[in-house]
Write a protein that binds this DNA or RNA. Structure first.
Lengths: 345, 345
DNA sequence: CGCCCGTTTGACAACGATGTCATCACTAGT
DNA sequence: ACTAGTGATGACATCGTTGTCAAACGGGCG
């Protein structure tokens, strides 16, 4: 009795075209033709090859083929986002995957945690694997380092944040417009003491949102009750708003310019029992916002559209489109649920 | 003046070791040695090579190297989950990535939407790319088709759901135990009319949860007020619970055995204004559960642990560990927030 | 001074596939 | 019957890299 270990070299090694060819009694090039559906193979030969491939559970080595193939496409995309464990990134990722899967393209994903160092490492790791294109929510202030790769013809598309230092496609939300919309909504309810809670100033979208907010207030001849920036997590946002609520002359309305900041703000308002008399509008939707009481009014982004359009740009470039680089802006949607419609007292 | 197009073939082609070698005035093998940090290169030669590589923005081709290298590792992992756009999958994914990134391993992710056909296609797509290992939340009832690959030595680890038809590692939640815990909690509050809302019977974890729930009730000598299965989305769950609430003798407590079902149940309770007098315990945590009123009591899973442990199993196998396949069970945690502590009227 | 040995280096084959091209067997046209 | 054309097939070089091996060189030792 011959006991075969799990790492048995016989069954352990992967079959190659050569072995399939041998078993089918044909040349290796004929196997290649059958596997790739090339013409000029008799049906009987093709069947013999397919039988042999099936018997050996043969899977072609995409990378070996790619090495020799003229188009040099790995049918692989690299996606770089804030964190795959984050609803916004998840929605972008899913949209990219949906666009890719139909074309037989697989997607690498990497989380950057807004760390520029990690971005450079992750990009390098993907390029060494010869991805056909990159889609990234950049964490760096300047992407000049991508210039050589771009010149080589690798499509690079920015999502959510615009590129700086290089000329390439970008798909972004209308951050300033959305923030202005939020401000106008609160102004329309009669609010004149509106507080702004924002993310790190180093993030371009955060700056855009503040700009849109302040512009809208200025157009109405109103000055912001307060502007708090550099709130990078839920708890920092909560503490900041608690302080504002405890101070004399607290705001009658709050605009929270990011996801986690909105959640922190919700906690602060409940903590101080002010959630029924202080208006709140958030930027970017949050889960279960409709089940809260009052429901959370938000300016929603459309991450699925961002992801889909970015993937479409990459594929268009791969298909040879070399029109000048585009900047696609995706609109935002105000979703009225209650918290934004609380009037000033 | 020579105008260079963006797709210029000169700058458009990627530099190879040969070109680096030529520029540095050394043999190609010496470049290989420097790039891979092999010993026996004089510092001056190494510097010349690094300078040349830098000047050309050289990136080694991992796949070409892998073709020749003896270990045949692509430093790539395939992850198959329900959907990358889903908090549970996102947490698993992030944990896998965190374990992988330190080892220089990149992660392919694919969404299956519980479609067996997609699972087979996605697995094939990953194997053609020669991933070093697979981590999967299976969507198929039987995974015998993975047997040849497993015999070839590719580590395959199941997460969340157990394998069937093959013998391999699995990391799962204590589904029956967690469901029992939820039932016991409701029984302890004095409930005797408890409704069960569950996912598709075809999903193994759904069956486990029902089993745990019914066992706990049986131990207490109580029969379920109702058992509703095959609720695969939020809306189906909402409708089902609305029906139960409208019927004579509605339940005094509800156990919702999955994420989206819990959200559907929350909607139903609010819709009928019964959220303050009907107890609810959910399986798997939901975002913002603590901000609702009452807060949502849940039996939380630990997807980060599932992902981390699965990745560790894969790497252990790759490192040569060939102990018998393990089944690792990760416990659940009851998080008390209010909704589960409402007493029967 | 000659031998041995370790260090540094490059020539060459090989990994698994595909592109090119030559060969062979037929069929059709004259 | 002979030529040209077409379809089916395989030999061979090649993609970018690494493993193997041998050559060249210099230093230490008897």
């Amino acid at each position: 009795m011959t006991s075969l270990s799990a790492r048995d070299p016989g069954s352990g090694s992967r079959p190659t075209m050569r072995q399939v060819a041998e078993l089918a009694g044909v040349g290796i090039k004929t196997v290649s033709r059958v596997i790739n559906g090339e013409p000029n193979v008799t049906p009987e030969t093709a069947q013999r090859v397919l039988d042999a491939a099936g018997a050996l559970d043969y899977q072609p080595d995409l990378h070996a083929g790619n090495l020799r193939r003229s188009d040099r496409r790995t049918r692989t995309l690299g996606l770089l986002v804030g964190s795959v464990d984050n609803p916004f990134s998840g929605a972008v990722h899913r949209a990219v995957e949906d666009a890719a899967v139909g074309r037989g393209v697989a997607v690498f994903a990497s989380s950057l945690d807004d760390d520029p160092q990690r971005e450079r490492e992750a990009v390098a790791a993907f390029l060494r694997r010869r991805v056909d294109g990159l889609i990234l929510v950049t964490a760096t202030a300047d992407q000049t380092y991508l210039e050589p790769e771009l010149r080589r013809g690798t499509p690079i598309v920015f999502v959510d944040r615009e590129p700086s230092g290089i000329e390439t496609d970008a798909v972004v939300s209308d951050n300033a417009g959305g923030a202005a919309r939020a401000a106008e909504h609160l102004l329309a309810q009669g609010h004149r003491r509106i507080a702004y809670l924002g993310d790190l100033r180093s993030i371009q979208t955060a700056r855009e949102r503040l700009r849109g907010f302040l512009d809208a207030l200025a157009r109405a001849g109103v000055t912001a009750a307060s502007v708090t920036e550099d709130l990078h997590d839920q708890d920092a946002a909560r503490e900041a708003l608690v302080r504002l609520l405890d101070a004399p002359d607290p705001p009658t309305a709050v605009f929270s310019a990011q996801n986690l900041i909105t959640i922190g703000a919700l906690h602060a308002l409940r903590e101080r029992g002010r959630h029924r008399d202080t208006a709140l509008v958030g930027f970017d939707d949050v889960a279960l916002a409709d089940l809260l009481d009052p429901g959370v009014t938000v300016v929603a982004q459309h991450p699925e559209d961002l992801g889909r359009l970015a993937a479409e740009r990459v594929f268009a470039r791969l298909d040879g489109n070399d029109s000048p680089s585009q900047r696609i802006v995706v609109g935002t949607t105000l979703i009225v649920r209650g918290s934004g419609e609380i009037p000033p007292k």
